[in-house]
């Protein structure tokens, strides 16, 4: 490789490699060492933000696999996260250890996701979107009204998770757990995309009829996409439930589904890196707006009364602006920036 002025693939294996360059490996390594050290120099509040980002990354990567890569629009992702949260929470309350409870929560969610994925064989595009919307609303109703299981609108209180007797009761300890799971999910989805399955998903998204005619079993692959995506959504929900230690049905309403869809759109559809960008952006957005409102509060004293109403609106506005002006998301911008610096200071 030494002495070459660019990245030239001479075999398929080379093209499918996980780390394309040594530099990428090295810089990612440095990034992770920096991440692992964050609890040393960040405050608890900042760590809690990082935890929320990690949890959001899991959910966003999962949704991007289903919607971005396989093209199956899901408006029920928030409810699937809720199923995972309740299943994991209930198992923990029944005395299960944390990790089996988390995995079981994921499996239950995968099952629920597959049930609601069954109509995807016949339905596509907006019909599927509406079917998953119905799934979202029906599951929300179940969370709210199956009081003997979910506690209804009162919610469920949970303990901090413990792994092999080590209680993860602080943000810093929780951070290592969420980071591990997030890295694992990102690796899982990235690797799925490099296999036959990933290529089949993309083929279904791009043109389902040609996909079927070259031998992709639509039903099976769509269901697999639903299963993997919901499994990760369930894991994300389980972590969330144990991190906040309290879950209520309102957390998992349609707004959550919209937030996750916004993440993958703002980040970049069909790109794992994009889901991470989107998760970071959408999680930090309310904090950024809050800081802005506090700063503006010095000049306009009654802005905080409008702030609550404005927050959702600004979120929607950003979503609309992204769709109009940057439809390929942040990841596209990131690639442009990288391409610019690659040859800096020479333009060509």
């Amino acid at each position: 490789m030494r002495g070459k002025c660019g990245l030239f693939h001479t075999s398929y294996a080379q093209e499918a490699r996980f780390f394309q360059t040594g530099f990428l490996k090295f810089s990612l390594g440095l990034f992770f060492i920096a991440l692992l050290c964050t609890p040393l120099y960040l405050s608890n509040y900042q760590l809690s933000m990082l935890n929320m980002i990690n949890i959001a990354v899991i959910g966003a990567v999962a949704l991007n696999l289903l919607t971005g890569c396989c093209g199956q629009i899901s408006l029920g992702h928030g409810a699937f996260i809720g199923v995972g949260a309740y299943a994991t929470g209930l198992c923990s309350l029944a005395g299960w250890p944390f990790i089996p409870a988390l995995l079981f929560g994921g499996l239950v969610t995968a099952l629920v996701g597959m049930i609601f994925g069954v109509p995807s064989l016949r339905l596509k595009g907006i019909y599927l979107a509406i079917a998953t919307l119905a799934a979202q609303l029906i599951l929300s109703y179940v969370f709210m009204h199956w009081e003997s299981m979910t506690g209804g609108s009162v919610g469920l209180g949970l303990d901090a998770p413990a792994i092999c007797g080590l209680a993860l009761d602080s943000d810093a300890k929780m951070f290592y757990l969420t980071l591990t799971v997030a890295v694992f999910s990102v690796l899982l989805v990235s690797n799925i995309l490099r296999t036959r399955h990933g290529r089949a998903f993309v083929a279904i998204r791009d043109f389902h009829q040609s996909a079927e005619s070259v031998g992709v079993n639509l039903f099976s692959y769509k269901l697999q996409a639903f299963a993997v995506s919901s499994f990760l959504a369930g894991i994300s929900g389980g972590l969330w439930a144990h991190y906040t230690m309290y879950i209520t049905p309102e957390q998992f309403d349609i707004l959550l589904s919209i937030r996750y869809l916004a993440m993958i759109i703002i980040g970049g559809m069909g790109s794992v890196l994009g889901s991470i960008f989107g998760a970071v952006f959408v999680t930090l957005l309310p904090e950024g707006l809050g800081a802005l409102a506090q700063w503006a509060g010095a000049f306009f004293p009654n802005i905080s009364t409008y702030f609550l109403a404005m927050r959702e609106g600004i979120f929607g506005l950003i979503l609309v602006l992204f769709l109009i002006f940057e439809p390929e998301g942040l990841v596209h911008r990131w690639r442009l920036i990288k391409a610019y610096w690659k040859l800096y200071p020479f333009a060509y």
Binding site: T67, I73, G125, I126, A129, I258, L261, A262, I265, M269, Y306, A309, M310, R311, E312, G313, I314, F315, G316, L317, I318, L319, V320, L323, I324, P327
Partner: peptide, 23 residues
């Protein structure tokens, strides 16, 4: 643009309209 973009733009629009009314 793809269906999902069109769906999401109307969803975004709905939150904007809602927050304007609330304000």
């Amino acid at each position: 643009e793809p269906i999902i973009s069109v769906i999401m733009v109307t969803v975004g629009l709905s939150t904007v309209l809602k927050s304007v009314v609330q304000m």
